[in-house]
């Protein structure tokens, strides 16, 4: 398979556009099912959600006075591209970029791409001349700042474990030491607290679990711009689930290979998406720290776990 064909296959088919969209739809439904399980609500038919997005693409895209349409359009387009890139560059099994070009993935690059969509939402919230979007953006910025610190520490612990920033997803030949498993578990727990924030879908409908702010950063968007952000958020969920599974879950079972590893992948994706839904249903929204500053116990606990993971990783490296 030549490089160009492999590149096109990776971008357009697997793990690119086609598979990303299918995975996004399936995992969004899984998240909604998880949330509905806790809130005892009904789960929306995924086909209806897809038809809704198609209808939304046909609606007028009204831009509020004082906002630049091109900037809003560019932000909404980037909201689709960044999580898609994160998925394409992840060295998932069978990724043509891995087998042909030898792409190994990069923890820092992946984390940066996954932070892209939340950052774009902040930019949009601040760019629009609306007090509601700016209020939402201010609060989201505080929460994101806390999440970034925890994620960086958790990733540092994992990088210390494997002595590389690359993503080596191949099964290991020997079982790791207990301290290594303990380190990876701590990193997983720390990351589990911030994953729902990165995979947040901005609520645009009234629901008992969303009573916090009148609206979010997307309040002023409509039509194709809003639809692109919603598509981006769905793909972001798929990318987050894949990233979490690859970086934090699979290292707990490093010697599993073959069909077992494939099953672990699928379970990991479903577990991540469903877990996010359960968490959202339980907390009544993903805004974990609400209007409070990020430096409260809600940041303190994952921060402590991440620091412990880092210490454990350093100890394991010594040993």
């Amino acid at each position: 398979m030549n490089d160009i064909f492999a590149f096109l296959l990776a971008v357009l088919i697997y793990p690119g556009v086609v598979v990303a969209v299918l995975a996004a739809a399936a995992l969004t439904w899984t998240r909604d099912a998880g949330r509905a399980f806790v809130t005892r609500a009904t789960v929306e038919n995924p086909m209806r959600a897809i038809r809704g997005l198609r209808t939304a693409l046909d609606r007028d895209a009204l831009i509020p006075d004082g906002a630049a349409p091109r900037i809003v359009g560019a932000l909404s387009l980037a909201a689709v591209i960044l999580p898609l890139l994160a998925l394409i560059l992840l060295p998932v099994p069978g990724n043509p970029l891995v087998s042909v070009i030898g792409a190994t993935g990069d923890l820092a690059a992946e984390a940066g791409l996954l932070l892209g969509l939340p950052a774009l939402r902040l930019c949009l919230g601040w760019a629009l001349p609306s007090p509601y979007t700016r209020l939402a953006a201010d609060r989201a910025a505080r929460n994101l700042a806390g999440a970034v610190v925890v994620l960086a520490l958790a990733l540092a612990a994992i990088a210390e474990q494997f002595q590389t920033l690359g993503l080596n997803l191949a099964p290991a030949r020997t079982a790791p030491a207990t301290i290594d498993i303990f380190t990876r578990l701590l990193a997983l727990l720390a990351a589990a607290f911030v994953i729902p924030l990165l995979a947040r879908a901005t609520p645009t409908r009234d629901g008992a679990e969303d009573i916090d702010l009148v609206a979010g950063e997307l309040t002023e968007l409509s039509g194709a711009d809003l639809a692109r952000f919603r598509i981006g958020e769905a793909i972001q969920l798929a990318a987050i689930a894949a990233f979490f599974t690859a970086v934090f879950l699979l290292p707990l079972f490093p010697t599993v290979s073959g069909a077992g590893r494939a099953i672990l992948w699928i379970l990991g994706l479903l577990f991540t998406a469903g877990g996010i839904g359960l968490w959202e249903g339980y907390t009544g929204g993903v805004r974990a720290s609400g209007d409070r500053p990020p430096l409260n116990w809600w940041l303190g606990l994952p921060l402590l776990l991440a620091l412990l993971a880092l210490v454990a990783a350093a100890w394991a490296a010594r040993g």
């Binding site: 929306e44 809704g52 409908r205 968007l221």
Partner: peptide
């Protein structure tokens, strides 16, 4: 739910 009716938070939506 059967009719797909939801309550929006913003006139834009």
């Amino acid at each position: 739910a059967a009719q797909g009716i939801t309550f929006a938070r913003s006139p834009r939506h």
